[in-house]
Simulated assay, not measured.
Amino acid sequence: MDDYKFNEVKDVRWESINPEDGNIKFRKNKKKSFFGGFLKAIIFIIIASISGGISGAYVVNNIYNSNGGKYVIPQKNESYTGDTLKSSNLYGSAINKIADNVGPAVVGVSNTGESFWGTVDKGIGSGIIFDSNGYIVTNYHVIEGAAKVTVKLSNGKVFPAKLVGYDKRSDIAVIKIEGTNLPVATFGDSTKVRVGDLAVAIGNPLGEEFAGSVTAGIISALNRTMKYDGAIYKVLQTDAAINPGNSGGPLVNENGEVIGINSLKIGSEANAEGMGFAIAINEAKTIIDALMNDGKVKRPALGVLGQTVSSRDGSIKGFYVNQVIEASGAAAAGMKPTDIIIEIDKQKVESFEDLAEALDKHKIGDSVSCKIWRDGATVELNITLKEVKEANR
């Protein structure tokens, strides 16, 4: 295979009111009229001054002072009248409420592992309590390779945690601590998020020293697809600061609902400012449900191991099959090692990510058409997708 260049082996299993001209005209010898007009002007000025003073006093007493000495701007469809001002969802007060209501449900997640020197601290991330009985969601990379996981609540209490399940592909993990009546965060609907919406990130950037940090910004973009290390993420982009340690913490909307799970790992190599990413909560909820029910995510898989390949002249690109898993759909259909998958369901496959994305549109038991390049010719196979248990572990 000297004619091909290979990438890392991957496992495929698996948004002044002016009068007319502004002048006053006088007529000769009509002093009465002149003085009458002058008197009216003086009276008008006095009345206007009194009205202005009353209005100004109202603004100072009812707006400035009632907001801690800070002037505020009414939001859309709001005005400075009666109870409307007091109940308006102003930008600053929204963040205060989010911090107060969601903050207690955000935890620190510590990962310790074993080495030649004994137990070592492998880092800290964040997590979200979503069930009052101690169930917490975080990023898989936060607890990856951990010999021991501990959770620190916002009140300072520390608990050992056990793993419920994880999915490396989506970078989601669920852990549990022994507790009851714990504060929980409410999951929102990420499909309703719009570009420009308020976005607040809560977590432990750079470790426990900065636990409970709150940063705010906006939603910068929607429906981003990020590909990293074989995983395909459906994410929200935000300019709210997300730093190491924020991973696994919540991205929250103005209603205090979790709309995403922060994941610095995505795009961290770019080292860009003002570009944070969070796994859309609707994507995450499906994974969380599967982990809670089965401890893993069941995905359809062809049943092959391999890597991305391209010929030197670029005429052939696809997924090179190194191994066909025994008893898989690929094995039953007659796929062989050295085959190159170039199409799935008539969609071009030029990389591992293309293949994974195509399979994500199907469920276990579906039959897919697969075009392969074999010994200089194309061959078409129909493959029934099965679950390969080793794919998630």
Rank of each mutant, 00 (worst) to 15 (best):
K5T: 15
N7D: 13
E8Q: 14
E8Y: 10
K10E: 13
W14R: 15
E20G: 12
K25R: 14
F26N: 05
F38A: 15
I45Q: 06
I54H: 03
G56Y: 12
N61P: 06
N62M: 03
Y64C: 00
N67M: 05
Y71Q: 11
P74A: 09
E78H: 04
T81K: 15
L85P: 07
I95T: 02
I95Y: 05
A99D: 10
V102C: 02
V102M: 00
V102I: 05
G103D: 01
P104Y: 01
V106D: 06
D121V: 06
I124K: 11
I124T: 14
I128C: 02
Y135L: 14
T138S: 04
V151H: 08
K152S: 09
K152P: 00
G156W: 09
F159S: 04
G165E: 01
D167R: 02
K168Y: 07
D171W: 01
I172D: 05
A173L: 01
G179E: 11
N181F: 04
L182M: 11
D189G: 10
S190A: 03
S190M: 07
T191D: 15
K192Q: 13
K192H: 09
L198Y: 09
A201N: 03
A201L: 03
G207F: 04
E208Y: 14
E209H: 11
G212L: 01
G217C: 00
I219S: 11
S220N: 01
A221I: 06
N223C: 03
K227Y: 12
K227L: 13
Y228W: 12
Y228K: 12
D229P: 05
K234C: 10
V235I: 09
V235N: 06
A240S: 09
A241E: 03
I242M: 01
G248I: 10
P250M: 00
N262E: 07
G267Q: 04
A270T: 15
N271F: 12
N271T: 11
E273Y: 15
M275C: 11
A278E: 11
N293M: 10
N293D: 14
G295Y: 03
V297T: 02
P300T: 03
V304G: 06
G306W: 09
G306M: 00
R312M: 08
S315P: 06
G318Y: 09
A332V: 15
G334M: 09
G334C: 03
G334N: 03
T338I: 12
D339V: 01
I342M: 10
Q347P: 04
Q347F: 12
K348G: 07
V349P: 03
E350W: 12
A356R: 12
A356I: 15
A356G: 06
H362W: 02
K363G: 11
G365C: 08
S369H: 10
C370I: 15
I372S: 07
W373A: 13
W373G: 02
R374H: 07
V379K: 13
N382R: 14
N392C: 11
